[in-house]
Every structure is written in structure tokens, then in C-alpha cells.
């Protein structure tokens, strides 16, 4: 960055500190590369078409039903959380008055939601959705639980995207005679779409990788679901069960590969989307 004064003679202490900083950054890269590299190298040989068989049997621990469960839960959770999350962000950015006591309380609760560990969400999902609302161990209960969990993520990313839209857009819209709602929905929101999508893609990743919140809400049944009220394990739960049983380590490695690849793709897509927002403005 601002390295134009680098020419000055550096003392030994400065040199050592400078090198330490580079080393620390190296540790990050190294740990990520070794994690992904190891899982890919060990797991790819075990990827086979049988793992994507329609049915899960004790001979062939297919991950296909888990994949279907995961996608179903992502779809349901997003259709619940996305409208609420985006609406909340619109309220925060476009309507709420700065400095209002109540608004800052709402802001705090969003931070609180973001900080709650997934196992606590899981327990709440069990107490509320599974038992109190009598959904039983079901995809629906799991989806509702993770929907609350990803809410803060969607709110925060949408907020950022809305704030990135220049004030002049809004002023010009008012000048043309549009009212507040029209301005928000027709002018501001479309301009913020890439940023909002980037956040939604990230939350898809969060759901895909969730385990602790789903074990006691969606359950661990490994067969294809009949409807949203059947129990089913997500891909991450599938990996956890296989790895902790220790009987199908090869399949566990293959499942880990699938999860890692999905994560990489999702993160890439999100970064690409966020980049589009930056270029757009």
C-alpha cells in the first residue's frame, strides 16, 4: 500500500517485525491450503457414482438423499429468511431515524443473534419447533431453525449493499416525483441487488455447512424425504455421522470433498457478486 518511504534504512527490530508479519500471513494461507489440499487429495479417489445413488443402504452409504435434504432446507430457509432479512435492512437504512433508542435496541438484537452459537439455535429449535409446535424431527423444523440463524447475516449484508447506493439516486428519484416506497423498491433496491445476492449466497453456504443446529431439529434419517415433515440429515450431518461412526471413512472423505467443493464455489460466487456491486457504483 503506502510503501513509498520504504527506502529509509530499517533497523533490525523493524526488519524482524516486518518478517513476522509476513510469516503470520503465511500461516493463514498454509493452513487453508493444507486443509483443502489434504481433503481433496485423500478424498477424490473415493468419489464414485455409487455415492450418488438414489437410495441409502448399509452397504452403500449414498450421500444423495442428504444432498436433496440440504437443498430442500436451503430453499425453505431462504424463502423465510430472505424477505424478513431484506425488509429489516430496508427499515434500518431507509426508514429508521438515527439515534432512536428503539432502533439501537433492534441493532443490538441483530448482533446478539449473530453471536449465538449454533448449538443454542439447535436446542431452541428442538424446544420450540420440534416439541412446542409439534413439527417433530423434520426438514421443516430444521429449515425454520437455520432461517433464524442466517437472519443477521442477510440483514448485515443487505444493509451494507443499501448503504453503498449513492444518496444522489434517492434525491433524483424524489425530484422526479416518486414517493418513498417507490424510490426504495424501484431505484435503491435494484442498484443493491448484487450485494444482497452476495449475502444470500453466503447464507446458503452457512446452511450447507450447518451441523449442530440440525442434529436435533431435522434429525439424522438417511433416506430420501417424502415431504417437509419427514426427518432428514443434511450433507454436513451426514459427514459428521460417518466420521464419528468411523466405519465408512472412505465415504466420509468423499463427502468432505463434495462439501469443500460446494463451499469454494459458493464463496467464489459471493465474492464475484460483491465485486459486481463495487464496479456498478
Amino acid at each position: 500500500m503506502v510503501n513509498c518511504f520504504k527506502m529509509q534504512a530499517a533497523t533490525t527490530a523493524s526488519k524482524v517485525l516486518g518478517i513476522t508479519v509476513w510469516l503470520a500471513a503465511g500461516v493463514n494461507v498454509l493452513s487453508l491450503i493444507s486443509l483443502i489440499g489434504y481433503i481433496l487429495a485423500q478424498g477424490i479417489p473415493y468419489l464414485s457414482w455409487e455415492l450418488f445413488a438414489l437410495e441409502y443402504t448399509t452397504q452403500n452409504v449414498s450421500l444423495f438423499p442428504a444432498l436433496v435434504d440440504t437443498l430442500l432446507m436451503v430453499a425453505v430457509a431462504l424463502s423465510l429468511a430472505a424477505p424478513i432479512g431484506i425488509g429489516t435492512a430496508i427499515y434500518f437504512v431507509e426508514y429508521a431515524k438515527k439515534g432512536n433508542k428503539f432502533v439501537s435496541i433492534m441493532d443490538m438484537t441483530t448482533d446478539t443473534l449473530a453471536g449465538i452459537p449454533s448449538v443454542v439455535y439447535g436446542l431452541f429449535g428442538l424446544l420450540f419447533f420440534v416439541i412446542y409446535l409439534q413439527m417433530g424431527y423434520s426438514l421443516l423444523a430444521g429449515a425454520c431453525t437455520v432461517a433464524i440463524m442466517i437472519l443477521p447475516m442477510i440483514i448485515r449484508t443487505t444493509e451494507e449493499a443499501l448503504q453503498a447506493v449513492p444518496i444522489s439516486y434517492r434525491e433524483e428519484s424524489y425530484a422526479l416525483g416518486a414517493n418513498k416506497l417507490r424510490t426504495v423498491l424501484v431505484v435503491v433496491l435494484p442498484a443493491a441487488v448484487p450485494g444482497i445476492l452476495a449475502g444470500i449466497i453466503l447464507s446458503i453456504g452457512r446452511i450447507m455447512g450447518e451441523t449442530a443446529a440440525l442434529v436435533y431439529t431435522a434429525g439424522t434419517v438417511a433416506q430420501l424425504p417424502e415431504d417437509l415433515f419427514s426427518s432428514g440429515r443434511s450433507l454436513a450431518v451426514h459427514l459428521y455421522v460417518l466420521a464419528s461412526e468411523g466405519l465408512f471413512m472412505e465415504q466420509a472423505f468423499a463427502t468432505a470433498v463434495v462439501l469443500v467443493i460446494i463451499t469454494v464455489i459458493i464463496n467464489g460466487a459471493s465474492t464475484w457478486m460483491a465485486g459486481k456491486l463495487m464496479r456498478g457504483n
Binding site: L35, Y38, G205, R206, G209, V237, L239, A243, L259, T263
Partner: peptide, 10 residues
């Protein structure tokens, strides 16, 4: 973004 279960598995 990497799921905790992947870290756990590693």
C-alpha cells in the same frame, strides 16, 4: 466459509 464439520474432520 468452510463448515465447522470440515474443520472437525480435518
Amino acid at each position: 466459509g468452510i463448515p465447522s464439520v470440515i474443520y472437525g474432520f480435518f
